[in-house]
Amino acid sequence: MTTVFDGMAGVMAKAFGAPVLYTPKSGEPVTVQAVLREGPIEVAGDDGRAVLILSPTLQVPKNVLPDIARGDLVAAVSAPEKVFLVLNSLPNGSPAADAMLICELELVDD
């Protein structure tokens, strides 16, 4: 079902995101436009209340990386030396077809 929110995640990723190198556990790396943050973010929990995520996060439209999974790797193209491991991915609760996925990350030690 089409909603007024369809297309907004892509717009947000383009406006506030940057190129990110995504490497699945099996497969070839691809560059996508996403929002990679190392600082805390606030998201809505299952009950609608604010939840603070202290880990680094990746926010990407679910239609861009629908198969992102635990164990995959991401790195900002501008800082490829900092590689992050995907711990989990959760929908942000939007009904839009291209809603953002919020992925909790962990910095991979050298």
Results as ranks from 00 to 15, higher is better:
residue 86 V to H: 06
residue 15 A to M: 04
residue 97 A to C: 01
residue 8 M to Y: 09
residue 93 G to V: 05
residue 63 N to W: 05
residue 107 L to N: 08
residue 73 L to W: 03
residue 45 G to P: 05
residue 35 V to W: 06
residue 72 D to V: 07
residue 100 M to W: 11
residue 35 V to Y: 07
residue 8 M to G: 09
residue 73 L to S: 00
residue 91 P to F: 13
residue 101 L to R: 09
residue 39 G to I: 02
residue 44 A to T: 01
residue 70 R to G: 13
residue 89 S to P: 12
residue 59 Q to T: 13
residue 88 N to P: 05
residue 55 S to F: 03
residue 26 S to H: 10
residue 107 L to H: 11
residue 105 L to F: 03
residue 51 V to G: 01
residue 110 D to P: 10
residue 61 P to S: 08
residue 23 T to K: 07
residue 73 L to T: 05
residue 39 G to Y: 01
residue 5 F to I: 03
residue 3 T to H: 12
residue 32 V to P: 04
residue 32 V to N: 05
residue 34 A to R: 02
residue 103 C to M: 01
residue 52 L to T: 14
residue 106 E to L: 04
residue 50 A to L: 14
residue 37 R to P: 06
residue 25 K to V: 13
residue 45 G to W: 04
residue 44 A to V: 03
residue 44 A to F: 00
residue 19 P to V: 10
residue 86 V to K: 04
residue 54 L to H: 12
residue 22 Y to G: 03
residue 56 P to S: 10
residue 58 L to Y: 02
residue 54 L to T: 13
residue 1 M to E: 15
residue 47 D to P: 00
residue 23 T to D: 00
residue 69 A to H: 14
residue 35 V to K: 12
residue 67 D to F: 07
residue 23 T to P: 00
residue 48 G to I: 04
residue 64 V to A: 02
residue 97 A to R: 05
residue 13 A to N: 07
residue 20 V to M: 02
residue 94 S to P: 10
residue 59 Q to G: 14
residue 82 K to G: 03
residue 16 F to M: 13
residue 109 D to H: 06
residue 61 P to Q: 07
residue 58 L to H: 04
residue 10 G to S: 07
residue 59 Q to N: 14
residue 11 V to N: 07
residue 26 S to I: 09
residue 82 K to L: 13
residue 8 M to H: 10
residue 58 L to N: 00
